[in-house]
Amino acid sequence: MTRTGKAKSEKATVISGASIERSPRSIMGSRVETDRNLLDHIRSSQGYRGNVRLLEEESDLASLGLERYKRAVEMCAPKAIATIDAARLGVSLDKGKCILCGRCQEVAPDLFKIENGFVPPTREKRDLVESLGGRTASEGVKKSYEETGKELKEKISKMFGRSLAVREVDAGSCNGCEIEITALNNPIYDIERFGIHFVASPRHADVLLVTGVGSRNMEVALRRTYEATPNPKVVVAVGACACSGGIFGETYATNAGVDNVVPVDVYVPGCPPRPEAILQGLLSAVDRIK
C-alpha cells in the first residue's frame, strides 16, 4: 500500500493551497492550467437554491392573508407544504419532499425564504418536517466541505482502519443525484482522500447510497442488493426522491421513497443534494455504525 495517509494529506495541501504559485505546469508534454483553488469556490454561490426556510418572525398568518398561503400549498408540485392546523393556520414544510424550485418564495415571500446553504441530513424522516410554531426553523448547513471531510476522515480511520466502502444504487432516479455522487469522485472533491471509496459490489460495501423513488421495477434488485451487503450496514437515502418520492410522489410505478423498500438510516434531502450534502450524509452514516 503506497497510498499512505501522509501522501494523501500532501495531495490535499497542493490542491487547496492558494499560496502556491499559479503558473502553468507542464505535465506529460502538455501545458494544462487548472484552478488550484477551485476548492475555495465550492461553497455554494449566492443564488444557489439549497434550503427553504419558514420565516418564523412573520408567523402571524392571519395578517398574511389566506390567499397567498393557499396558493403556495396548491402550487407546490411535490406537496411539501401542508396545513397542520387549519384553525390556527399552521404551516408545515417537508424538506424531504422539497425540490427547491423556489415557487413558494415567489408566491409568499413573507412566509418562505430560499437560502443558499443546504438542509442537514437527518436520521429520522420526521426531522425533515419543519413547522411554524413548532421547533425552531433550522439553519441550512454552511460547514465547508474540507471541515466535514476531515471530521469524517478521523472517524473512518478510528472505526474502519482508514477505509469506508460505499456502493451506490439507483432505484429510479433521474440521474441528477448520480451526477452529484460522481462529482465527489472528481479531482476537486476527491472523496478518496478522506478514506471513502466506491466499490463495484454490495458484498464489499459498508454503506449503500440509494437514490431515486424506489421504482416498482427496481424493488427486487434493490432488496437483493441490500441483502447482499454484509452487516453492519448503513443505508443512506440520497435526494428528495429517495427520501419521499420527490416530485413523483406515489404512483403506480413508484414507492414514495426507498424506505418503503429497504430500511433507511440517514436521509439526505435536496434535488439533487450538492456533493457537500452527500458527504455530510456519509458522516451521519458513519455515526450510525456503532
Binding site: 432505484a171 429510479g172 421495477n217 404512483t251
Partner: peptide, 11 residues
C-alpha cells in the same frame, strides 16, 4: 430497460 420507469407521462 425500464427499471427506472416512474410514470412521467401519466403524472
Amino acid at each position: 430497460l425500464f427499471y427506472v420507469h416512474r410514470g412521467v407521462e401519466k403524472l
